[in-house]
Design a binder for these strands. Structure first.
Length: 958
RNA sequence: GUGGGUGUGCCGUAGUGGUCAAUCGGGAUGGACUCAAAAUCCAUUAGCUUAGUGCUUACGCAGGUUCGAGUCCUGCCACCCACACCA
């Protein structure tokens, strides 16, 4: 029959609900517990396939742990803080077609869509719908524990305020300046999602160099390479261009318009005075760091919009600068035009400042030669080698004797990588330079305004760069389990690499910083320890059911419940929450915490998961630090990235409605494991349906049927079932859900097939029952509805969801029994091979010749000897000293061949007696397979017996 | 660029240094069943092949360690992820 997966899932979901199977109660604080968490989904839309894949891990694990006898809490929350919802609502208000289409695709009607121009409506709509989807998937969820984030949720808001007060108390929240990508029209930071162009571009840090003219004005240049400061030979300005003269921080600067404006946004006082022509500066001299003067030369290659519109030239280590210099030195016309003495210009030579291995002390020259570049018009090549040289200088070059003096320490011989920052700091301190930010590429806001870099003052940071904090974070990581373990290195790296994090913003939804109400806590910072809140959310989200109110929750409350500080009496006095409730929540928290498991896709390693570690170590004592993280890859569909533009974007709901919960649960779990990207194979839906239907029919027809006597092959099958229990259990424990399916569904079915073939469809009743019960239980975490349906069929009552996880009977596992089955399978395929060679389609008789007696002894001895030496001569010598000497001729041929290829040896110990017994037992099957008589022959002198070896019979097909 | 991960047959995947020409699923081909199809079952699916149950190449590329390498080491190449105020 064909199962209607939709019907059975409705049936069982209703039954679970009615019997409160997944309601979480803590009635025994001694009972072992397992608390699973996963980052709550963002409520800017319905859950999609990626969510399904990520959530299947904790979902499956939760069911597994329940069956193992744990009290399990698996929580869901709905994330609504931050800017995306606000941004999306704004788009709806503007009637942006893409956004409207996205909502329509989620099944929202035209009239309904307009309501989504209010952010609040998203928060009302999507959590409700998401919960519906989660339940329809049969996920283990106790909805009393679910909640939404944002300040709209008062108790949650109070919790986040408490969290930030704690961080501030510890000195981890500090104020500072911070460069951000900024839209001048919106007057707000422009995140990736709010850009119409320039996703991924960031503020890049430059150093502005000040070059003093004799009249007291400064020419300003920008550089990424302050390390070459000692090598400046001249400045370049475009004589035909207009520059801007501006008063910056009380000094007169000459630069381009862009930079002047940017400086203003970056916290400098800037008053633009007038336009000046580049021409008037050509030939003048400026003062340089290190007590030198250099000349200003004309150049037309300058990009006026980039940097400051003029540059200082370091021909020793910049190919662009060098080639420009060479060109000018040949160009009498230009020199004359700007009143320059060409002989003076010709005297300008690169000043060696760096030693670059393989390129000498004038690296730029070596590079130009290497790539045979003749003119500054070869832009493409020049761009390429500029990057290459930059890399080489940065990582391999060392500074020369020019850096001995002049700096706060002797930098001679130091690598550029190490010295760069010291040089920058010294230059800044000495008033020669200052930091400046420019975008790494063009960024355009959604409002079509071009973005700039803005220095935000009074920005609040979390000091993830704090050394001591990093140390404890590492301590926490070291104590955690990471699945898969290979990603630990990545975590180690990230904890070190993270620096201060701007944790609050001026826009978006969320909790306000308790000490500075102008700022909203940013959404990656407010979700780092909410798993603690979630242990008691059942009470805080539904206080009326427990007869109290949460209007006056305060820090005292959370201090007591989460940190065991203060007294219940005082908390009752200040919050009005009855002592009994306070104590219950405290006990619940202490019971559930820490969380045992948290998983996410790998893109959250560098932010959310790392923050989670940091924040826990800052706030909680060691015993409440996270226990484990599991990281999964991203989901691909039929080996393509899921994306709306490709049209292969699927919400969980639409897949569910089409195929049913169990089918997509199985397909998702089977998509992959480990941190590699997983592949959701749409074609597997049908395979899954077919296999489950088959399984159901088998259960129905075979339970409680069969013979009662016990044969050798029954023992083999019993061994396989128990082996499968062990392997599947380990797979679940290691978060290898795909492997678990492989073992418990596919492999087990294969073994069953072989078993039925071997018993000629006369299985042992006890074993068939063991198989069926075991398999249903092993699969229940992945496809629970289907398994309940099967369970009902055989048991009639109870839930398989509540059944005890099977335990492997170690005594029944007998790997040696595999040998006989392997021999049989090999014999069958060898016979086929022989038939093919002999071109026999239908054999009349098959004779199997067992190897001569002495070969068994020989093989045994050979296996011993080979452990000692691989030298054929030595092995032969030893063998020849024994009674095997009489077979010397055969042995001398066998030994080298066997050393080369040990696959010809039987894997396990095998006696002639055993082999004959196994052959006699299985010859009936061979006879049936080939439709002819089969005879086992013991005749060592027969020609065919000569080629036989233990475990490998001689075959004669007639 | 930096850090991390991964590269296996037509496709997707498994793979503790020796039973690996390689697991499992799919696909393809041939056969059985059928009036036919689907489903199911069986076989084949690197190349060669003489009753030799054999041989030769193969696990991104190139080297190395080892008696022995898909598995260990080194170097290349390719792909994926992250790189910040964005969830």
């Amino acid at each position: 029959m064909t199962i209607n997966f939709k019907d059975i899932e409705k049936k069982w979901q209703a039954a679970w609900e009615k019997n409160k199977v997944f309601q979480v109660e803590v009635d025994d604080y001694q009972k072992k517990k397992f608390y699973l968490t996963t980052p709550y989904p963002y409520m800017s839309g319905l859950l999609h396939l990626g969510h399904l894949f990520t959530y299947m891990a904790p979902e499956t694990l939760a069911r597994f742990k329940r069956m193992q006898g744990h009290n399990v809490l698996f929580k869901y929350g709905f994330h609504c803080t931050g800017t995306p919802i606000v941004a999306a609502a704004k788009k709806v208000a503007e009637k942006e077609p893409k956004q409207i289409a996205a909502l329509e695709k989620m099944g929202i009607s035209k009239e309904e869509i307009l309501k989504f121009s209010e952010p609040e409506h998203w928060i009302q709509y999507f959590p409700k719908e998401t919960l519906r989807d989660i339940k329809s998937m049969g996920f283990v969820v106790d909805e009393r524990y679910t909640f939404i984030t944002t300040s709209l949720n008062k108790p949650y808001d109070a919790f986040i305020k408490w969290q930030f007060n704690k961080l501030k108390e510890k000195g981890y929240a500090k104020k500072g300046k911070h460069p951000v990508v900024w839209c001048p029209k919106d007057n707000a930071p422009t995140g990736d999602h709010a850009r119409s162009e320039g996703e991924g571009e960031t503020p890049q840090e430059y150093l502005l160099f000040k070059h003093k003219l004799e009249d007291g004005r400064y020419l300003i240049t920008a550089t990424l390479r302050p390390d070459t400061v000692m090598g400046t030979t001249n400045l370049y300005m475009n004589p035909e261009a207009k520059y801007t003269e501006a008063e910056v921080n009380g000094e007169k600067w000459v630069l381009n318009d862009n930079c002047a404006k940017n400086l203003k946004e970056q916290g400098h006082e800037v008053n633009i005075i007038e336009k000046v022509s580049g021409k008037e500066f050509i030939g003048k001299k400026v003062e340089e760091f290190g007590n030198r003067k250099v000349i200003i030369l004309p150049a037309t290659f300058l990009d006026l919009d980039f940097g400051t519109g003029l540059v200082h030239s370091v021909p020793s280590d910049s190919t662009d600068d060098l080639i420009a210099l060479r060109d000018l030195q040949k160009d009498e016309t230009t020199c004359e035009k700007y009143g320059l003495d060409i002989n003076e210009i010709k005297k300008i030579q690169p000043i060696p400042v760096l030693n670059t291995p393989g390129l000498g002390n004038i690296a730029a020259e070596a590079m130009l030669k290497k790539y045979n570049i003749k003119s500054q018009n070869e832009r493409e090549k020049l761009e390429k080698i500029k990057k290459e040289l930059y890399k080489l200088s940065h990582f391999t070059a060392t500074l020369n004797e020019k850096y001995k003096e002049n700096f706060s320490e002797n930098l001679e011989g130091k690598r550029v990588e190490e010295a760069k920052e010291i040089i920058s700091n010294d230059l800044i301190k000495g008033g020669w330079a200052l930091k400046y930010y420019e975008l790494s590429g063009k960024v355009v806001c959604r409002c079509l305004t071009e973005c700039i870099v803005k220095m935000v003052e009074n920005q609040w940071f979390l000091e993830y760069n704090d050394k001591k904090w990093k140390e404890v974070a590492h301590e926490c990581l070291d104590s955690m389990k990471i699945y898969p373990e290979v990603l630990r290195k990545q975590f180690d790296y990230v904890l070190d690499w993270l620096h201060r994090w701007a944790c609050a913003r001026e826009l978006g939804l969320g909790t306000r910083l308790p000490w500075d109400e102008n700022w909203v806590i940013e959404s990656l910072s407010d979700s780092t320890i909410q798993m603690a809140y979630n242990t008691i959310s059942k009470y805080l989200e539904h206080p009326e059911e427990y007869g109290f109110s949460v209007d006056q929750l305060n820090d005292e409350f959370f201090d007591y419940v989460h940190l065991n500080k203060g007294t219940a009496e005082k908390v009752e006095a200040s919050t009005g929450v009855p002592i009994k409730m306070i104590e219950t929540m405290k006990k619940d928290f202490e019971y559930w915490y820490p969380f045992d498991f948290r998983n996410s896709a790998k893109d959250l390693i560098q932010n959310h998961l790392a923050f989670c570690i940091f924040n826990h170590t800052a706030i909680f004592p060691k015993e409440h630090w996270p226990k484990s993280f599991m990281i999964n890859g991203r989901i691909m569909i039929n080996n393509e990235k899921m994306s709306k533009s490709k049209g292969n974007f699927f919400t969980m709901r639409e897949l569910h409605d089409k195929h049913g919960a169990d089918i997509i649960r199985l397909t998702a779990s089977n998509a992959g494991e480990g941190s590699d990207d997983a592949n959701y194979d749409m074609g597997f839906h049908d395979i899954a349906k077919r296999k489950l239907n088959e399984l159901y029919d088998f259960v129905k027809e075979n339970y409680n049927k069969g013979r009662t006597d016990k044969l050798l092959i029954d023992q083999w099958f019993e061994s396989k079932i128990n082996e499968t229990i062990g392997k599947t259990t380990i797979a679940f424990e290691n978060m290898q859900f795909k492997s678990a399916i492989q073992f418990s569904l596919l492999d087990l079915q294969r073994h069953l097939k072989w078993y039925l073939k071997r018993t000629k469809d006369q299985p042992n009743k006890e074993l068939i029952n063991l198989l069926i019960e075991t398999q249903i239980k092993l699969l229940a975490p992945v496809i629970p509805h289907f398994c309940e349906e099967c369970w009902e069929l055989i048991k009639g009552k109870e839930f398989v969801s509540n059944a005890a996880w099977p335990e492997a009977n170690q005594e029944a596992i007998k790997p040696e029994l595999d040998l006989g089955e392997e021999l049989l399978k090999n014999n069958i395929s060898d016979i086929r091979e022989v038939m093919k060679l002999a071109k026999i389609d239908q054999p009349k008789a098959i004779k199997l010749f067992v190897a001569a007696d002495w070969k068994y002894g020989f093989v045994e001895k050979f296996k011993e000897l080979i452990k000692e030496t691989r030298n054929p001569g030595e092995i032969l010598k030893t063998l020849m000293q024994s009674e095997l000497k009489q077979h010397g001729k055969d042995i001398s041929k066998l030994v080298p061949a066997l050393i080369k290829d040990q696959s010809k040896l039987p894997a396990k110990e095998l006696t002639k007696k055993n082999e004959i017994a196994a052959l006699e037992e299985s010859k009936g099957l061979i006879a049936e397979e080939f439709g002819c008589s089969v005879e086992v022959v013991i005749d060592s002198d027969h020609n065919k017996a000569k080629s036989a070896m233990p475990g490998k019979v001689g075959i004669l097909v007639e």
